[in-house]
Amino acid sequence: MAREGKPASVQRAIVAVAADRPQAPCDWLPQSGAVDPAAKRRLREIRRKLDPFALKEAIERALRRILAQPLHSSRPTGSLRSEAALAKAENITN
């Protein structure tokens, strides 16, 4: 991996910069030697089909659907606060 004609400090800096870049598994796995060629082809195909903007929209739609649902608690009404806290809250609002 040595780069001809470059001092060792520059070589280390190049490697450090490349290692610091965040990458998705679809990007770094094919570059590693840990994956067979068929899996590399599948990963590259998946990566080619990914659309980050469409993924963002799908996530936002799902979150809107989840957040639109009413909140339900399995606890009985009033069990989350003591009677004293409820009375104090009523006095403040009145």
Rank of each mutant, 00 (worst) to 15 (best):
M1P: 06
M1I: 10
M1N: 01
A2Q: 12
R3D: 08
E4S: 06
A8L: 05
A8C: 01
S9R: 02
Q11D: 05
A13I: 02
A13Q: 00
A13L: 00
I14S: 01
I14N: 06
I14P: 05
V15I: 12
A16E: 00
A16N: 04
R21G: 02
R21V: 14
Q23T: 10
Q23Y: 01
P25C: 03
W28N: 05
P30Q: 04
G33A: 04
V35F: 02
K40Y: 04
R41L: 15
R42E: 10
R42T: 08
R44G: 09
I46V: 15
R47F: 07
R47V: 04
R48G: 13
R48D: 09
R48W: 07
A54S: 00
L55H: 05
L55A: 06
K56F: 13
A58Y: 03
I59C: 08
I59E: 02
E60Y: 08
E60Q: 10
R61K: 09
A62N: 10
R65G: 15
L67M: 08
A68E: 02
A68C: 02
L71P: 07
H72T: 14
G78A: 05
R81S: 12
R81C: 13
E83Q: 14
E83L: 13
A84H: 09
A85N: 12
K88P: 08
A89C: 09
E90W: 12
N91W: 13
T93R: 15
